[in-house]
Design a protein around this nucleic acid. Structure first.
Length: 594
DNA sequence: CATTGGACTTGGCACTATCCAA
DNA sequence: TTGGATAGTGCCAAGTCCAATG
C-alpha cells in the first residue's frame, strides 16, 4: 500500500530518539539538497507520472422561461442569452448590501454593457432604469423549491455528485490514486472581493476549454476536452504540482487545479514547513540578538530591518509585500505606513506603547497596543520624522531584502516561518501550562481550545460574530438555568430519601438513597459540562480557530498531547483534518515536543 | 536593482449536511 | 417527524515567496 511506504519513510526519518539531533540532521539535509546538483533535481521534481481526467466544467447557462422578464425603463425587454446570463448574476445578488455600492454598480454595468449586442447597448444606458425584480423573484423561488425537495430527489442529487467525484475527483500520481482539491472549474459570476475592493462587481467570465492548460505526464491518457473544443495547451512539466491552470480575467493571474491536503505531495510539504519552523526554534536566540544589535546601526536601512523583524517575531505580522492600486488597501509589516501606528510615550501605566491600527489580509483589522523596547520606540520616532501619514514607515526595506537577510541567518528562513514558529511554540507552551492532572476530558478540551485560541489571537484570526450568537448563547444559559433547577429538585429529593432511610432503614430505602445520590452527581457533571461549553463559546465569539489549526499548528503537538492525556484524537480533529494530518498521527509518540 | 510572472499557502465566509430536542 | 442549531465543507480571494527578465 502506498500509505505504508509513506509511513515507513516518515517514521524512519522522523522518530529518532533525539529530536535535537534530528533537527540538526534535517538542517544539513535541507541545506545540501538546495545546493548539490543531484539534490536539486530531486528537490524540484514533483512527480514522475501524473494522469487525470481534466477539470469538470460547470453546466451551460439555461435561459429564463419566457414569462420571466427583464424590464428597462418600465418596458419588458427580451435579452440575448449572453446578456441575460450576466443579468441573472446581478439579480441573484440583489439582497446583498454590496449591490448598493457605487463601485460595484459601475463595474458591473460597465462589464455588462461590453457583453451586450449593439442594439442592447443602444437601449440600456442607465443601471437605475434596469428592473431585475422578476428575475430575482424567480431565483428566490427556485432556491425555495430546492430546499423543499423530497428525500428521494435529494438522494438522486447526492448520487450524481458522488459519481462526479468518482470520475473527476481523483488523479493517479506516481501510480497512486490521490484526491484532487478543486476539480470543478469556477463558474462565471460577479467578482466580489474583500473589503473596499476597486474591482468589485466586475464580470468573472466563463472559463472555456480553450483557456485551460493541462499538465500531465507524456505517456498518460490525455484528458479529453469537451466535445467540439480544444485545450489551450497540454504540457508535461513535472516540476510543478498542478493538473490544470487558466488565467482568471479579473486580475489576469493564473489559477490552478491542485491536490487535496490529504495527498502525500501536500503532506510532505506541510511536514517540511514545520521542520523549518523547528529549525528556527534552534536559531531564534541568535537571530534575536542580531536584530537587537541592528537597532543601533549607523545605517537607517539596517535599523528599519531590525525593527521590522522584531515586529514579525514579536507580533507575528505578515511580511507585507507591495500591492498595486487594483486591489483593496491592506498592509503587512513592510508595507506599514506612518498613519498605521501611533506612538505613546506612556499609556495606561505602560511605557513606550505602539498603537497599531491597520487593515491586514482580507481587510481584517489589526488593532493592538503593544509596549516595546525603548530603543524600538526611539527608532520608530526617527522613522516617522518628517514623513506624511501616507508615507511608508519602513521606506528603506522591502520584503525581498528582508527575506534575503533572514535566509542568510538560516537557510529556508522567511518572514512567514516566524508565524508558524510562534504559533506552534505558543500552542506547545499553553498546552503544557493549561493541562493539569485530574482534569476530565471536557476540561482538557477546553484547555486545548484555549491554547488554540491564544494562537488565533496572536495571528489575528478573527471572524464576524455568528449571526445566531446572541440567541444560541441565551439558549445555552436557559439550559444551564434549567439544569440548576433540576439539581435543586434532585437535592431536595435526596434529602428526603436520606431522612426516610434514617427513619425507617430498609433495602428499598437504601437503594432509593443511592439512586438519588447518583442523580445529584450526574446532574452536577452535566451542569459543569454546560458551563464549560458556555465559557468556551463566549471566549470564541469573534475568534476563528480553523486557520491556525489547519495552517500554523504543528499537528504533532496535538497528537502527542492527545496520547499523553488520553484524549481521543477525534475530539480534536474531525475526519478531514485527520486525513490531512495522517502523517503526524502516524509518526508521533506522546513525548514529541515542538 | 526593480518589475513581472508563476506557483504555492493562507484566509474568511456562505452554503450544506448532520444532529438533537421538541 | 421536524425545524433550528451546529459542525463541516467548498469556494475562491488574497496573501507569500521565488525566479526570470530587463
Amino acid at each position: 500500500m502506498y500509505w505504508r511506504t509513506y509511513r515507513a519513510r516518515s517514521s524512519r526519518v522522523c522518530c529518532t530518539g533525539n529530536e535535537n539531533m534530528f533537527a540538526f540532521h534535517f538542517a544539513i539535509y535541507l541545506y545540501f539538497s538546495g545546493t548539490w546538483e543531484e539534490g536539486k533535481s530531486s528537490d524540484t521534481q514533483k512527480w514522475s507520472s501524473l494522469e487525470h481526467k481534466g477539470p469538470y466544467f460547470p453546466p451551460e447557462y439555461e435561459p429564463l422561461p419566457d414569462n420571466i422578464c427583464f424590464n428597462y425603463d418600465g418596458q419588458p425587454v427580451k435579452l440575448s442569452p449572453v446578456t441575460e446570463e450576466i443579468a441573472t448574476f446581478y439579480a441573484k445578488m440583489l439582497d446583498h448590501e454590496y449591490t448598493s455600492k457605487e463601485v460595484f454598480q459601475n463595474n458591473f454595468f460597465c462589464d455588462w454593457r461590453e457583453e451586450m449586442t449593439k442594439e442592447e447597448r443602444k437601449l440600456i444606458k442607465t443601471l437605475s432604469k434596469c428592473d431585475f425584480s422578476q428575475i430575482h423573484k424567480y431565483f428566490v423561488e427556485k432556491s425555495e423549491e430546492r430546499k423543499n425537495m423530497t428525500k428521494e430527489e435529494k438522494q438522486v442529487l447526492k448520487e450524481e455528485a458522488s459519481r462526479l467525484m468518482e470520475e473527476y475527483g481523483y488523479c493517479l500520481l506516481d501510480g497512486h490514486r490521490e484526491k484532487i482539491g478543486n476539480f470543478k472549474l469556477e463558474p462565471p459570476g460577479l467578482f466580489r472581493g474583500r473589503g473596499e475592493h476597486p474591482k468589485m462587481g466586475k464580470l468573472k467570465k466563463r472559463i472555456q476549454p480553450e483557456d485551460v492548460t493541462i499538465n500531465c505526464s507524456q505517456d498518460s491518457k490525455i484528458p479529453a476536452p469537451p466535445a467540439g473544443h480544444r485545450w489551450k495547451r497540454v504540457q508535461h512539466d513535472n516540476t510543478v504540482t498542478w493538473l490544470a491552470s487558466w488565467l482568471e480575467n479579473i486580475h489576469g493571474r493564473p489559477k490552478y487545479i491542485m491536490l487535496n491536503p490529504s495527498s502525500k505531495l501536500k503532506g510532505e510539504k506541510d511536514w517540511q514547513k514545520y521542520e523549518t519552523a523547528r529549525r528556527l526554534k534552534m536559531k531564534v536566540d541568535s537571530i534575536r540578538k542580531q536584530y537587537r544589535r541592528d537597532w543601533t546601526s549607523r545605517e537607517m536601512k539596517i535599523r528599519q530591518r531590525g525593527v521590522a523583524i522584531y515586529f514579525i517575531d514579536k507580533l507575528a505580522l505578515r511580511a507585507g509585500n507591495e500591492k498595486d492600486d487594483e486591489s483593496a488597501d491592506t498592509v503587512g509589516c513592510c508595507s506599514l505606513r506612518v498613519e498605521h501606528i501611533t506612538l505613546h510615550r506612556r499609556l495606561d501605566a505602560q511605557e513606550h506603547v505602539v498603537e497599531f491600527d491597520f487593515l491586514g489580509k482580507d481587510s481584517i483589522r489589526y488593532y493592538n497596543k503593544v509596549p516595546v523596547e525603548k530603543q524600538v520606540f526611539k527608532n520608530l520616532k526617527l522613522f516617522i520624522k518628517h514623513k506624511d501619514p501616507e508615507d511608508d514607515l519602513f521606506d528603506r526595506i522591502t520584503t525581498v531584502k528582508l527575506n534575503k537577510t533572514l535566509n542568510e541567518s538560516m537557510p529556508g528562513l522567511t518572514a512567514k516561518v516566524f508565524r508558524t514558529f510562534n504559533a506552534s511554540t505558543t500552542l506547545q507552551d499553553q498546552l503544557n501550562k493549561l493541562t493539569t492532572g485530574g482534569m476530565t476530558v471536557e476540561e482538557k478540551i477546553l484547555s486545548y481550545n484555549r491554547a488554540n485560541r491564544a494562537v488565533a489571537i496572536l495571528c489575528n484570526h478573527q471572524r464576524a460574530a455568528p449571526k445566531t450568537f446572541e440567541r444560541s448563547m441565551q439558549l445555552l444559559q436557559e439550559k444551564i438555568q434549567k439544569k440548576k433547577e433540576q439539581i435543586e429538585e434532585a437535592k431536595k429529593e435526596l434529602k428526603e430519601a436520606k431522612k426516610a432511610h434514617k427513619d425507617a432503614p430498609s433495602d428499598k430505602s437504601k437503594k432509593l438513597l443511592e439512586k438519588k445520590e447518583k442523580a445529584v452527581q450526574r446532574l452536577g457533571e452535566q451542569l459543569k459540562k454546560l458551563q464549560l461549553q458556555e465559557t468556551d463559546r463566549e471566549e470564541n465569539k469573534v475568534i476563528a480557530l480553523g486557520t491556525s489549526k489547519l495552517n500554523y499548528l504543528d499537528p504533532r503537538i496535538s497528537v502527542a498531547w492527545c496520547k499523553k492525556h488520553q484524549v481521543p484524537i477525534e475530539k480534536i480533529y474531525n475526519k478531514t483534518q485527520r486525513d490531512k494530518f495522517a502523517w503526524a498521527i502516524d509518526m508521533t509518540d506522546e513525548n514529541f515536543q515542538f
